[in-house]
């Protein structure tokens, strides 16, 4: 009877030990997973930060290029207006001048960026790029 009890107790102790080991292993795995998750989050955060920086950089370059191209247009149309004083030549020159002001303002904001969400910044960048394509084509046909 006593012997039987002893064996039973030993077996139970073994069970408990095994269970503890299982729990410990699970905990290890869980900790490891958490580590991986944290690392992934770090990578993702860094990625978003880089993306934000690139977006701002592209927007700045586009705005700067627009300013240069618009200076060319203001030069051509301004000179034409001096030779041919008409509302047509004046209209073109004023248009280019105001678009130049818009891009100068945009560049100022890109260099001193207010708190802005990444999607908003990306949208601004796309507008600036589309504007660049339009202005570049206008310079191409006006250079003739």
């Amino acid at each position: 009877m006593t012997a039987t009890l002893g064996v039973t107790t030993a077996a139970t102790t073994l069970d408990v030990a095994t269970a503890s080991l299982d729990v410990a292993t699970t905990l290890d795995v869980a900790t490891a997973s958490l580590d991986v998750a944290t690392a992934s989050l770090d990578v993702a955060t860094a990625g978003i930060a880089t993306l934000g920086g690139a977006t701002l950089g592209v927007a700045r370059v586009a705005a700067a290029l627009n300013i240069l191209l618009l200076l060319v247009l203001v030069g051509i149309w301004g000179r034409n207006y001096l030779e041919i004083r008409s509302k047509h030549t004046l209209g073109s020159a004023v248009f280019a001048l105001l678009l130049l002001a818009e891009n100068a303002l945009a560049l100022f904001y890109y260099l001193n960026p207010p708190q802005m969400s990444t999607p908003a910044l990306r949208a601004m960048m796309y507008l600036q790029i589309l504007e660049f394509v339009g202005i570049a084509f206008l310079v191409y046909v006006t250079w003739d």
């Binding site: 051509i76 149309w77 034409n80 030779e83 041919i84 008409s86 047509h88 030549t89 073109s92 046909v141 006006t142 250079w143 003739d144």
Partner: peptide, 9 residues
Amino acid sequence: VLAGTRGGP
């Protein structure tokens, strides 16, 4: 062609 481009005048 005559007033809106560089070579217009």
